[in-house]
Nucleic acid binder design. Structure first.
Length: 252
DNA sequence: GTGGGATGGGCAA
DNA sequence: TGCCCCTCCCACA
């Protein structure tokens, strides 16, 4: 965990590739806390010094102990102490925010399944939507925060819900089930740093998923047989992203 | 070697 | 809705 390695410690902050020019504002300061809200990460360096990181599609962290490795590649950010280092490459955003900006972000985002939030606000929003599909609503970060394209497809499959059903046609029961599923699967995903959504019995090779094994029911499985019913998985762009679903298991 | 797609989101129109 | 951002990796030459 980044908090364990760097929390409460005076850290070195660098922006080696020149695209993170505010590194000097943070360098040598105490990193008080590492915060996560939805897909956003905040590093608290004190008043109006909140380092905001959003990974976007390409971002990735590399972490290690001991001396930091030699600079290589397009290295946007490095945080380090004598004992630990952390490198960030390819994020959508890595910049210093004011407290106000950070608070505004938190206010805008919907309940996060990983933060023990009450989902009620999100349920209400969904149930009030008479024309927006549940497939689009699950991707909306103001409804719930943290759910992305893989999870929306997989949660809907696991719930047996068609992505095309509008929000108002969802039942509270179904929404509760999806939320519960999200809390469990996203927690596992965070711990494993890998998104696994298939039940052991539905995986082609049994229980523990091998590294090269299929671990999704529908995501990126266009034209391949559904693990449950054998129907070919379909795909369509919804909300600018590729949606996948089983037309038999997710009829309504 | 090259080109396209990808776990995202903000913006203009 | 489409475009941009801008990095990595894979399939295909």
């Amino acid at each position: 965990m980044q908090t364990e390695a760097f929390g409460g410690k005076k850290v070195r902050v660098e922006g080696p590739n020149g695209r993170f020019t505010d590194a000097a504002l943070l360098d040598g300061r105490v990193l008080r806390e590492v915060m996560a809200v939805g897909k956003h990460i905040g590093y608290d360096f004190g008043k109006d010094r909140k380092l905001h990181v959003h990974m976007g599609l390409y971002g990735d962290f590399t972490e290690g102990t001991g001396a930091a490795p030699e600079m290589r590649g397009a290295l946007r950010l490095r945080i380090s102490t004598k004992n630990d280092w952390l490198e960030l490459r390819g994020p959508t955003d890595c910049s210093v925010w004011t407290d106000e900006e950070w608070e505004a972000l938190k206010a805008r985002l919907g309940p996060d399944p990983l933060n023990g939030d009450d989902p009620e606000r999100g349920f209400k929003t969904i149930l009030a939507k008479k024309t927006t599909s549940i497939g689009a609503l699950l991707m909306d970060q103001t409804v719930f925060s943290g759910i992305g394209n893989i999870y929306r497809a997989e949660f809907l499959f696991r719930a047996g819900v068609s992505p095309f059903r509008v929000g108002a046609e969802m039942t509270r029961q179904e929404l509760k089930a999806i939320w519960k599923d999200a809390c469990a699967l996203m927690q596992d995903g965070m711990v494993d740093r890998r998104i696994v959504t298939t039940m052991p019995a539905d995986r082609p090779h049994g229980k523990g998923p091998a590294l090269d094994e299929e671990v999704h029911y529908v995501y990126r499985r266009k034209g391949r047989p559904c693990f449950v019913c054998g129907t070919k998985i379909e795909t369509k762009v919804m909300g600018g992203r590729n949606l996948f679903w089983c037309p038999t298991c997710q009829v309504k």
